[in-house]
Amino acid sequence: MADAVKPASQEAPKIEFPCEDYPVKVMGDAGTDFQQFAIEVMERHAPGLDQTRISIKASRNGRFQSITFFITATGVEQLQSLHEDLRSNSQTKMVL
């Protein structure tokens, strides 16, 4: 019997800060309330957010939407705070 191949341990890629064009995707309930909440959180944590680059896509049945932002990530603390604030809303389903 051949020896089993062990998968190499994979580490998360290292991000060098500041990191321009860092994508953040937020998925939640469809509606302008959720959009406005997400934009306000992003602006608070990533001043200078370019709103012309925000992409909003509805799910097939229109119940959910994903919003993609591109920010300049300044550090791990910024990204953790951003994630926590986005998750604080019950309309938020996922943050990537």
Rank of each mutant, 00 (worst) to 15 (best):
L96C: 05
M94S: 13
E77I: 01
F70K: 01
A58N: 13
I54G: 08
T52G: 08
Q35M: 06
R53Q: 14
I15Y: 08
G62E: 10
A73M: 02
G28S: 02
G62S: 04
D21M: 07
C19R: 09
S90K: 11
N61Q: 08
R53P: 01
S88L: 15
N61D: 13
T32D: 10
I71S: 02
A12H: 06
Y22P: 04
E77Y: 01
E43H: 06
Q51V: 10
T72D: 15
Q91T: 12
G31A: 01
T72H: 05
F69N: 06
I15N: 02
Q36D: 02
S81Q: 12
G48S: 06
L82G: 05
N89P: 11
V5I: 07
F37P: 12
I71D: 12
A73K: 02
N89I: 12
V76C: 02
I39Y: 09
S81R: 05
S81K: 01
V24W: 01
S9N: 13
S59P: 10
N89G: 13
G62N: 03
E43K: 09
V76D: 12
E77D: 01
I71E: 14
S81V: 00
V24M: 02
L86S: 08
M94Q: 14
R53G: 05
L79Y: 00
T52A: 13
V76Y: 07
T52I: 08
D85L: 10
A30L: 01
Q91P: 09
Q10R: 12
Q51K: 13
T52P: 11
V95Y: 14
Q10G: 02
D85W: 00
T72P: 02
A12P: 13
A4G: 00
Q36F: 01
E11Y: 13
V95E: 11
D85I: 08
L82M: 11
R60L: 15
Q80A: 06
Q80E: 14
F64C: 09
P7Y: 03
T32V: 05
Q36S: 11
E20S: 04
F64W: 13
A30N: 10
N61F: 14
H45G: 04
V26R: 04
P47A: 06
K93N: 14
P23A: 00
S59T: 09
R53F: 10
N61I: 09
S90M: 13
C19S: 03
S66N: 14
G75D: 03
T52C: 04
P18G: 01
E40S: 12
Q36I: 09
N61G: 09
T72I: 14
A4Q: 12
V26C: 02
H45K: 01
A30W: 06
I39V: 15
S81D: 14
S9R: 15
D29I: 09
K14T: 07
A46H: 12
F34K: 04
I67N: 05
T74N: 02
E43S: 10
S9W: 08
D29L: 08
Q91W: 13
I71M: 10
R87F: 15
Q36C: 05
D85A: 03
I56P: 03
D21E: 09
T74V: 05
M42K: 00
D29W: 10
I39N: 07
F17A: 00
E43C: 11
A2Q: 11
E11H: 14
M1E: 00
K14W: 00
E11W: 08
S55I: 00
T74W: 08
E77K: 06
F17K: 04
K6P: 07
T72G: 09
